[in-house]
Amino acid sequence: MAPPSRYSPEFREEAVQIALRSSKTISEVARELELNSETLRGWVKTLQSLRLPGSGWPTATTSRVSASMTTWWLVEYR
C-alpha cells in the first residue's frame, strides 16, 4: 500500500486542471507548484484515464460510475 499523500485531493485536482489548461509544459507547471514533474504527470494521466467520454471531469453527480472513480481518486492518493 502506498504511503499517505501529503497533497489534498483538491490540490491534486487543481494542479491537474492548471497543467491541462496552461500553455506551459507539465514540468514548468510542476516547478511553479513546487512539485516533482513526474508526480504531476502521474496525476494528469490518472485523471485523464478516469474521465468518462463527453462528461468532463468526474464528479459525484455525473453518475454512479464516475462517483466510484472519484472515490477511488480520493482514496488511492491520500
Rank of each mutant, 00 (worst) to 15 (best):
A2F: 14
A2H: 13
P3F: 10
P4I: 08
P4W: 14
P4R: 15
R6Y: 09
Y7E: 06
Y7R: 10
P9A: 04
P9M: 00
E10Q: 11
E10D: 11
E10A: 12
F11H: 04
F11G: 00
F11D: 01
R12I: 03
E13D: 10
A15S: 11
A15L: 03
V16W: 04
V16D: 02
V16P: 00
Q17C: 05
I18A: 05
I18M: 13
I18G: 02
I18H: 01
L20P: 04
L20C: 10
R21N: 15
R21F: 13
S22F: 15
S22E: 11
S22A: 12
S23G: 11
K24P: 02
T25H: 04
I26M: 07
S27C: 04
S27I: 06
S27P: 00
E28A: 15
E32W: 05
E34I: 03
S37Y: 12
E38T: 14
T39C: 04
T39Y: 14
L40G: 02
R41I: 02
G42M: 03
G42Y: 05
W43R: 01
W43C: 00
W43I: 00
V44W: 03
V44A: 05
K45F: 03
T46P: 00
T46V: 14
L47F: 10
L47M: 15
L47Y: 09
Q48A: 03
S49N: 11
S49D: 12
S49P: 01
L50E: 01
R51N: 04
R51M: 13
R51I: 08
R51D: 07
L52Q: 13
P53Y: 09
G54W: 03
P58C: 05
T59N: 03
A60Y: 13
A60Q: 10
A60T: 09
T62Y: 06
S63Y: 07
S63K: 06
V65L: 12
V65F: 09
S66Q: 07
A67N: 07
A67P: 04
A67M: 07
M69E: 07
M69S: 06
T70W: 06
T70R: 10
T70S: 06
W73N: 02
L74D: 13
V75Q: 15
V75E: 15
V75A: 11
V75K: 15
Y77A: 07
R78K: 12
R78V: 09
